[in-house]
Simulated scan of single mutants.
Amino acid sequence: MTTPVIRTLDESSAHLFDTMPDPLGFRDRHRQTRYRPDWQRIAVRDGRTVARAAWWGRPEDPEPLLINWFDVAEGEEEAGAALLRTAPWPTDELELDLPAGWRSEVRQRAAADVRAAAARAAGYTPLVERFVYRWTADRSVPERPGRLLFTAEPDDTVFFDLLRRIHSVTLDAHARRAIEQGGPDRAAQQELDVFHWFPSPRAWWQIARTPGGETVGIHIPARNPSGSCVGFIGVVPEQRGHGYAYDLLAECTHFLVAQGARSIAAATDRTNLPMAAHFTAAGYPVVRERITFWSDGGVSAG
């Protein structure tokens, strides 16, 4: 067997990314995603593309944020791992967005296992499984319960303090990992960094309060490079048990629709059963199931 040739693409060779079968429907999943050709790589063996990966971020970013398209042909796990290991970008996170119910379909499960094995061989380990949702304009906008008041807040320190409180008791795997590594300050700062990374306006961030002035939580309506999304929903611990996360989600949806959104992406950990129930109640169907892999410090030998 010959050694695979690994190459980074450019404008003239970007079409080569589409020369692999697509058993997991990644093309449909990323139909709204715009990738930079120079953040796409393929591995070719004997004239056949046997692995491909696309790194994702804002067009103006100096480096990508994560890998969210990773394909590997059957039996080519090592080629897929080499494709990731030799990349010039030390990316911490890799996402496999799989079809909903993929475990019950034999061919999809086998294809997912190949890609997961290649990711592990490259140094990534599974962090969490998530439900991926998409609200579309053919669905009704969830009714506002009317229990909370929502206001903008220009001071980042207010959001930082609320994020520390929200993550002091959390089911979110990313936040828990950040807390293990650097405490609640690190978890809060990582969230703030993502909020600022969104290309949508800072003025969209909102705090929710009761009519009596008690702080309940925050919601972050956002746009990412692929479109509108629920950037964050969080309720402070002392206000939990009242279903307020649904109120925040409904308000976030209304806000984005008022900004012209025709579809809204969202995600939550599979283990976060309360939030998953709120998404279902708000009319957000599960469209994919995501496995998130993580590698501290990123995987790169480039």
Rank of each mutant, 00 (worst) to 15 (best):
L16S: 00
I6A: 03
Q32K: 09
I6E: 00
L65Q: 09
V299K: 11
R109Q: 15
R290L: 12
D269A: 14
G241K: 15
R48N: 09
A87V: 03
R27F: 10
Q108L: 07
A81F: 09
T19S: 11
E74V: 06
A187E: 04
F198T: 00
G231S: 05
A81Q: 14
T91V: 10
W56F: 12
G80E: 03
S140K: 05
W204G: 06
P126W: 11
A187D: 02
Q181V: 14
L9N: 01
R34K: 13
F159S: 10
A178D: 15
L163D: 08
T268A: 14
S295E: 03
G183N: 02
A281F: 08
W205S: 01
W102N: 12
S13T: 15
Y246E: 00
Y35E: 00
W56C: 00
Y284W: 03
D185K: 11
H15G: 13
S226F: 09
Y244T: 02
R130N: 14
T253A: 00
D10Y: 13
S13H: 11
D172H: 10
D10C: 08
E214V: 10
N68M: 02
R262A: 07
T136G: 13
L96C: 09
L149A: 12
R209Y: 00
N68Q: 02
D10A: 07
V114K: 04
D18M: 11
L256Y: 00
F159V: 06
T33S: 14
Q259A: 07
P126G: 00
E74T: 08
E93Y: 13
P64I: 14
